[in-house]
Simulated assay, not measured.
Amino acid sequence: MSTPGLTFVISRPKDPQKTSDDLYNRFYNEEHLPDIVALMKRLDFPALALRYQNADPASTRIPYLALYPYPDTAWQKTPERTKFIESTRHSRVLGGDIYEAVDFGFRLYEKIQTFEGYGHAEKSGRERGQTIVCVAMEPGASEEQQADFEDWYRKQHLDMLSMCKGYRRTTRYRRTDGVKPRFLALHEYACEPDELPSEQIAQVSATEWTKKILAEAEVFERDVLRLVHVEGDEGVKL
């Protein structure tokens, strides 16, 4: 049985003086994502590419993010993936090798859970949230702490988040290379970043179980990102 995967790509221009934000975004939205989606279609993958920008313009951790879901993590270790990457190296917009103009950070994940908000299970990806809260975590090191971390998500945290205004769904992943933080949660909300139900989210985070999980966590990273471009089959979910 195949396990769905996700390629998570952080990017930014290497030299903003040479590659303006406008040029960089034109390359990504008008050339790079369409090229990748076209290649995905040839592989008979659900062809979807999502691109986000951090709501905090000063963020250095994830200034821009691209997400590419696919049906089987086995593809991550195939020669075809290497060929796939090489085939998109040259840019007509940037006029050369994209790796000379843009910094990329790649992370590969396997899906471990999809949690749909009430009333959204039958909807397609067209109803995806315009904002994602991206949370990367590494739980406490013991087996007991890691089991508790998983129980917290499945038995309390997501149920409570789903009651927040605008909540759509959460998709959870684990890094396939074992690098920490290994666990990723993408929480989708149908609103702009400045319209997030911050007070409700704060109440969800105030439970004793949540405080325990966060206190034990080796790593906790949270970023709020705005959806800026969708390429390919908009009906596909993460």
Rank of each mutant, 00 (worst) to 15 (best):
E100Q: 14
H90A: 07
L108F: 12
I62R: 12
R92W: 07
R107P: 03
P63I: 08
D22E: 15
D97R: 00
L67R: 06
I62S: 10
R92N: 13
L94N: 14
M40K: 05
A47H: 05
R51I: 00
F115N: 07
N29W: 03
D56M: 09
Y64C: 05
L65F: 07
R81W: 00
Q53D: 06
E80G: 06
A101P: 02
Y68I: 13
L108E: 13
A49C: 10
R89P: 04
L39W: 01
R92G: 05
E86V: 07
R12G: 03
Y70L: 03
D22G: 06
T78P: 10
A66K: 00
D103P: 01
F8N: 01
I36D: 04
D21N: 14
Y70A: 02
Q53N: 06
E100V: 03
F27M: 10
E100M: 04
K41Q: 13
E31A: 00
F106C: 01
G96V: 06
R26I: 02
N54T: 12
S91A: 11
P79A: 12
D35F: 02
Q53M: 05
A49T: 08
K18D: 13
P34R: 06
N54M: 05
H90P: 06
E80L: 10
D35G: 01
R107D: 09
L39T: 00
V9P: 04
L23W: 10
P79S: 12
T78M: 12
N29S: 09
P79K: 15
T88A: 13
E30D: 13
E110Q: 11
P46M: 07
E100L: 00
G5F: 04
P4C: 05
D97P: 09
L48Q: 04
G96L: 05
A47R: 08
N25W: 05
K18T: 14
V102E: 09
E110W: 00
R61Y: 15
M40Y: 04
A66F: 02
Q17M: 12
P13R: 11
P57E: 12
K18A: 15
Y52A: 05
H32L: 02
K41M: 06
E86S: 09
S20H: 10
L6A: 02
D35Q: 09
M40W: 07
S20M: 09
S87C: 03
A66L: 09
I112V: 14
D44Y: 02
P69S: 13
L94A: 12
H32C: 01
F106V: 10
L23G: 11
